[in-house]
Design a protein around this nucleic acid. Structure first.
Lengths: 150, 150
DNA sequence: TTCCTTTAGTTCGGCACCTAACTAATATGG
DNA sequence: CCATATTAGTTAGGTGCCGAACTAAAGGAA
């Protein structure tokens, strides 16, 4: 009874996620940046300064998760976190000059994954992967929400 | 330019992994057990006591990762970790009586995911998901190994 | 205006991962 | 036989994720 047989799609989703995170983090390590830290920079570069709460929705993570990522970026001097004068609860996030300089030297880890993992793979197969995983995720999240309400 | 479009299979693999981990951990939380901790128990139940190094290969994680999981299980009184008399470097892992009792009350989180996420999904689609993710993972790991050697 | 609720963010503690650097013990080659 | 690998496991520190519980500020209702 091989347990991996029972949930092979789940097992491989996990393995792929961990492998791609490893590649991205290896790529970014020389710049002392984690994968989610990079993604925060990406948003700040492409959308300009924004409140932490807006980033929260873009990244789709919980508050303490983003709080930790931001703390690391502030510690490294890459991002400034200042209170919004309009609403003293909110914090505006903005790249520092050092952050802007860093960004210009950074490789694009998303392009790397796309190329090294999926280049040449049948488009329809990829569409199937997306469709199956998307629906499976929705089903699990529905289950989780149901459990919360009950 | 939506970044998610560029690597949608990767994005959904991640989302699915996180969602399934959340469901599993919610299921196991009443028993004060994490997902990987559960998987260690599963192996100890099905294969009997074994050295930590053998578990390492079964779980396919790095040494410090397993070390942390084992430490948590020992702290909770679920697993005993004793030196192998044959080889003083190795540690034999064995369920405690409390661990055995706990196991008998535990739900099966793998069955849960299989049912709630994939039940009714076309077998061929699942096969495609496995095939694509498996090959993508292999490509990334090959890349990682190459980088190590160079 | 005052009280109450909601919202934004942090802190704490926990899980699951990693690399780098370490100890202790066994195995091996000269 | 002894010096030198190699192997097993731990520790330290970092990333990314979570829920629970907290503070502070803003919004609303009586």
């Amino acid at each position: 009874m091989d347990i991996t047989k029972d949930n092979s799609a789940g097992i491989w989703a996990k393995k792929f996620y961990l492998a791609s995170r490893a590649v991205v983090e290896t790529t970014l390590r020389p710049y002392d940046l984690g994968s989610s830290q990079w993604y925060v920079l990406w948003h700040l570069v492409h959308d300009g300064p924004m409140a932490q709460r807006d980033l929260l929705r873009l990244l789709q993570v919980e508050k303490p998760t983003l709080s930790g990522i931001v703390r690391a970026l502030v510690r490294k001097g890459i991002v400034d976190q200042m209170p919004d004068p309009e609403d003293q609860r909110q914090r505006i996030l903005k790249l520092t000059p050092a952050g802007v300089r860093l960004w210009h030297n950074l490789p694009d880890p998303i392009a790397l994954i796309r190329k090294d993992a999926f280049e040449g793979v049948d488009e329809e197969d990829i569409a199937t992967v997306v469709r199956v995983l998307q629906s499976a995720t929705a089903r699990l999240q529905a289950l989780a929400n149901e459990g919360k309400k009950t």
